[in-house]
Design a protein around this nucleic acid. Structure first.
Lengths: 253, 253
DNA sequence: CGACCTGTTGATGTCCCTCAAAGGGGGTGG
DNA sequence: CCACCCCCTTTGAGGGACATCAACAGGTCG
């Protein structure tokens, strides 16, 4: 279990949606001009989050949810004995806090692992979204469905894959997810601010064994200087017993 | 990995929503008369599924989704090496196939483990739901959020709990979920048609070790004759490192 | 320079998997 | 009505993957 520093959340001036680079990325489905106009009006400010600070805690009743504009984070649950399970890594384009907003109780805590910028939406305007923009509301349940898909995959890897397979799977997924939103460098590396302990908590492994297994994977993928380099994607996919497909396209909110 | 028999899905006459006992159960939020009227009109038939048959397979493009009226099932994923991971048990009141309907590709296979009756909804009428009944559409994303909550809990148990804790957690959850929809008997038992191999595949354990661990849990919970009996709920919750809370209330579709 | 965090490596133990075999119970066929 | 079979459960033995404990190296920051 790892402990991080305290919080800092800042209101910041908004960037116009038109200039949002995420939108044009192949991960996301095209925006109509109408969509864009409505979202500009529907969104409610932008927020910056320092690395190490929390956006919300497990059990909070949220009044806002967010899509990640930049930076990386993690959602995690804490068991009563203090053990931590990282539920998923959070990347640009992800929507966080929707479940906690809708049901009134957050299912996991959300931590910034790098500095982050978030686009905020207010719960009290959800009726407007559902009442006046059924297509955007449909996009919202689409996003929830995609989320379910990922969690299901995670369950399969925690249940059925051994340490090597888990790590290969995770590194490959992370790389592909960041690559498709344009964060991969020429040299085949992506930003990876997480610690080995974070990976361990995400995959249900001990820190020590995570470290030793990472060493075995180094011919195909390595962690260094806060970046993840993947040098042999196919080998990694084979190790992971995964088809190596890119992430499926989905709506952006 | 277990293999089940072949399929059989039958169209059957519908039962009126008014007489649906599930609705009145404390798991679900109250229905307004309006809701009821619309859902009567929106639903599209009823379906019966024999034990051992599949409702859909991983990768299918679904044209319908369903809420379970009676019976029990399982959603599972199959890795490329043939290993099976049971993603969740499926109980009366659960909505299945929504994600596969929305995204166009099913995330897991759905198997009937007892005879089941399902209430069907058609994808091509979703626009009508979102366009004309925003509150029901909101209920849909609420349901998706609840689903996410459960999958997150499962991830935490696969990642952090040992065999005893996993089994205690699973048995308790199953018991509580079935009890709250009125399926518990006087003697503190609920129907449990699953095999020990199903439990093993759900919890990421081997069949043998599942069996041996179940033996240790017998003072507090036991499996016999297709039923699960829980004799000491608090002890089970303590073993499971869980608060033992009942399932949260949610909408029914 | 010392405190602290993260990564790395070695030694030891244990939880759980795999292999193996035997004991019910229900169904089918002779 | 019994014999046989199949599926599921149960139990034992042995081994391996991974956890835990421990110590050290390098980098960063006060």
């Amino acid at each position: 279990m790892l402990v991080y520093g305290t919080c800092r959340v800042n209101e910041v001036p908004v960037h116009p949606c038109q200039s949002c680079a995420l939108r044009k990325t192949p991960l996301f489905m095209p925006f109509s001009a109408d969509d864009l106009r409505f979202m500009m009006h529907f969104r409610d400010g932008e927020v910056e989050l320092d690395s190490g600070s929390m956006l919300f805690h497990e059990g909070d009743a949220l009044t806002s949810f967010y899509t990640v504009l930049s930076g990386q984070g993690a959602r995690y649950k804490t068991l009563q004995n203090g053990d931590r399970q990282l539920v998923n890594f959070v990347f640009p384009g992800d929507l966080v806090g929707l479940a906690g907003t809708v049901t009134g109780e957050t299912t996991a805590s959300m931590l910034a692992v790098s500095n982050m910028r978030l686009c905020r939406f207010r719960k009290n305007r959800l009726p407007e979204l559902f009442g006046r923009q059924p297509e955007r509301a449909y996009a919202l349940t689409w996003i929830a469905a995609v989320e379910e898909h990922f969690l299901g995959e995670t369950i399969a890897t925690l249940g059925q894959r051994n340490a090597t397979q888990r790590l290969a799977w995770a590194l490959l997924k992370v790389y592909q997810r960041l690559e498709i939103v344009g964060m991969a460098d020429q040299d085949g590396s992506v930003p990876f601010p997480y610690r080995q302990g974070d990976l361990a908590d995400a995959l249900g492994l001990s820190l020590v064994h995570t470290n030793k297994t990472l060493a075995h994977l180094r011919p195909w993928a390595r962690l260094a200087n806060g970046r993840l380099s993947v040098t042999n994607r196919d080998a990694l996919a084979k190790l992971a017993i995964s088809n190596g497909d890119s992430p499926i396209q989905r709506p952006l909110l």
